[in-house]
């Protein structure tokens, strides 16, 4: 994270250069090798001073569109968001402070979700709040059982 250098020059080329330097042929492969790692850490690993998390996200979505795996990516982004915001897993008690932490995570995730999946993402958030997962629940990847139930793979 620097002061805006991430947007200088050809950041897309830079992003993919860094991915290839690390031996991966796609951003998706790079990310899959780092399950549940928050997006900002993926970006930091690829370019501490000159790549932004949102650029990594845009690259992942572009790849997912091409391979028709957007729903899976939407689950994956939630996993990373939860990992960042709720490092101890789902809170046992949803008091005001914890409720806000959950709300912040779900809100940020929802804002990162493409329009095509907005409604379904909303439903996932509502379901998690209405019927909370077990305390300490920490999905380890997009194939988490509960997430697959809430947001199964059916391409829009």
């Amino acid at each position: 994270m620097s002061d805006g250098r991430s947007w200088e020059g050809n950041w897309k080329a830079r992003l993919y250069e860094r991915v290839r330097e690390r031996g991966y042929d796609s951003l998706t492969a790079f990310a899959e090798a780092r399950p549940a790692v928050p997006l900002y850490l993926l970006a930091e690993e690829l370019g501490k001073d000159d790549l932004a998390a949102v650029q990594v996200l845009s690259g992942l979505f572009a790849e997912a569109e091409r391979s028709k795996r957007v729903t899976r990516l939407v689950r994956d982004v939630l996993v990373r968001e939860l990992s960042e915001s709720l490092p101890d897993g789902w809170p046992a008690v949803l008091d005001d402070a914890n409720r806000f932490k959950v709300a912040k995570a779900l809100g940020c995730w929802s804002a990162d979700t493409p329009e095509s999946h907005e409604e379904r993402a909303r439903q996932v958030g509502d379901a998690l709040l209405a019927t909370p997962p077990p305390p300490g629940w920490r999905p380890l990847g997009p194939d988490d059982e509960l997430l697959l139930t809430l947001l199964p793979d059916e391409e829009v």
Binding site: A103, C108, S110, D112, P114
Partner: peptide, 27 residues
């Protein structure tokens, strides 16, 4: 920059969505 058609990353839209959705979820 040409984004994937499906990604809604534009700042204003993104930040208001994040804030408003968080507010709904916070109750």
């Amino acid at each position: 920059w040409k984004l994937g058609r499906k990604w809604p990353g534009e700042w204003n839209r993104m930040i208001m969505k994040a804030l408003r959705d968080a507010e709904v979820d916070a109750g």
